[in-house]
Structures are given as C-alpha cells and as structure tokens.
Design a protein around this nucleic acid. Structure first.
Lengths: 144, 144
DNA sequence: ACCCAATAATTGATATATCAACTAATTATG
DNA sequence: CATAATTAGTTGATATATCAATTATTGGGT
C-alpha cells in the first residue's frame, strides 16, 4: 500500500503546532522566571474565569482526566496558587479557588499570555483565523 | 484586564483537536487488539518510510526529545517491533529498523490508519483541507 | 598525535496522560 | 426506605514530555 509521507498528514501538522506553541509559551514563562507550566496556567485561567469550579468541571473544560487534574491541583496547592474547599451541599465535591497569590500570578501573567496568543496568528487575517477555528471545530465534531 | 474565554482561543482548540484525534486513534487501536500507542505507531511509520534512521533523526522528524525517543524505542524493542543496530562508520549512532514483526504490524495497521485520517476531514472539501494545512503551517513558522 | 568542542545516546528527576481500581457520598428505583 | 447505580475524588501503574547531566565517540584546529 502506497502511503503519504508523515509531513503531509494533517494530524501530524496539528501535533506540531501544538508542540511548538507549548514550547514557545513555556520558554517565555521560564524566561520571566514564572515557576509554572502551561497546563498550570490553563488551570489558573479557568478558575479565574469561573470561580469555585469542581475538579470534574475543570477536567471537562480542559479535556483532561480527573486523575490528571487531581495531580496538577496537588502541585498547585503546594505552590499555594490554588486552594480546595469542600462543597457543603455535596461532600464528594471540592471547590477550587485561587489564593491571593494565584490571583496575583494570573494578573501578572495575563498580558504576556495575550501576546503569546497574538504571536501564533501573526500574518493571518481575522477572516483566516476564523476559518481556521471553524475547520478545527469541524474536525473535533468528526472525532469526538 | 478583560480576557477572552478559553473556548474561543485558538491554541486551546488545537490542543482539543490533538486530544480528540489521539483518543479516537487509540480507541480503534485498542478495539483491534493492537498493543501499540499512537506514538509508537508514528515511530513504526517513520522507520517504514526511511529505513535505517538514527534516534536523533527520528526525534527531529517526530518533534520529540531524544530522551523521549530513547524510551519509546526501548519499549518497542521489548515488544520486538524495532531493533537497534550500531552504525559502523559512527559508533555513537544506532540505526533503527523494523523487525519482521514490526513490518507486519505496520502493514496490518496501515489501512485502518488511512481510514482514521479520513475520518478527521469528513465534510471538509479538498480546498478546505489544504487551507487548513496552509494556516497551520503559518502558525508553525510564527512560533518555532 | 593532542586537546577541545560538538554530537548521539542514555539516565535521572519531575510533570502530564490514561486506564483501572477503590472509597465516600449521592441519586435513582423497585 | 433499602439497595443498586452513579458520581467525585483519589491512588497505582505505565507511557510520554522535558530538562539536565553523563558517557562515548567524532571532528577540527594546532
């Protein structure tokens, strides 16, 4: 069976964009001396958006397993960026919220993160960026 | 600072496509009873394309660290899918090649993998798929 | 031939991804 | 209302991602 080379395959390209963007972000975080990973940033961002979210809700929002989220939160609790509070009306759940250190971290990082987002779409028109989002959305619908 | 919600952010969408496609592939591999990960498949594919590749070359092709490749190859050697041979003209390097089991595995899997690729772009025109690749390529150039 | 810088592979440490198993708490249902 | 099914969180095991350090080998310059 004849087969296309890896380089022309869409999934491969998507994985490459994903990796270069993660590395680009992480490099800047490290240069700034921010002791935080890109995944931990996403947690910070999501909790800042929706205060008092549970771990399951957070896992869904970030497409992660609850096991993965649990471990990320453990590390962020140790770093005092996030705290857990038990939800009184459902004792199985914990509510996640930012500590004041976490809130400050979020605010300090945000402008830089916005620049990192812009960097990726440099040279793309608004229309192209929208087209890109639309096509990626279609792929997601095909596969999930 | 006002900030866009996660759901509208391009990097986030790309990460989502990457995850759903990986999970979709892995689910099918598991259903077929193939004891192989999606990353190990990529190794199989790349070695099948370029016989006798070194670990550094493989790492570059798959955007992985040589440390990561080394560990993936270790597992694949244990599974007898791949073997290492020392390169006589440069004793630092090893050449990777498929075992006959690895070659057979590749041939068995390939048609299914081609279907998995098609699934992702269902409902996209050829033009749209090309547009998508082009835009992703631009993002890579911006970030690497 | 000798020293030094660069390269390939490897290993250790830490973070994340995933599945499976488990506990505790809640909800559904007979 | 008692029990079964479901849900949230946690932990263990294994695979991958990344950086740093180490070893062996090679190539360049003198």
């Amino acid at each position: 069976m004849k087969d296309e080379k890896l380089e022309g395959i869409l999934y491969y390209l998507i994985e490459k964009v994903n990796k270069v963007s993660r590395r680009y972000s992480q490099k800047i975080f490290d240069e700034q001396g921010w002791d935080i990973t890109k995944d931990q940033w996403l947690v910070l961002k999501k909790i800042a958006d929706n205060n008092r979210i549970s771990q399951v809700e957070l896992a869904r929002a970030l497409f992660k397993d609850t096991a993965a989220i649990n471990r990320i939160i453990n590390l962020m609790v140790v770093k005092k960026l996030v705290k857990r509070e038990s939800r009184p009306d459902d004792k199985r759940q914990v509510e996640l919220l930012l500590t004041s250190k976490g809130q400050k971290m979020f605010e300090v990082m945000l402008p830089t993160v916005v620049e990192i987002r812009k960097k990726g779409v440099e040279g793309l028109s608004t229309k192209e960026a929208e087209q890109l989002k639309m096509l990626l959305g279609k792929m997601i619908n095909n596969l999930e």
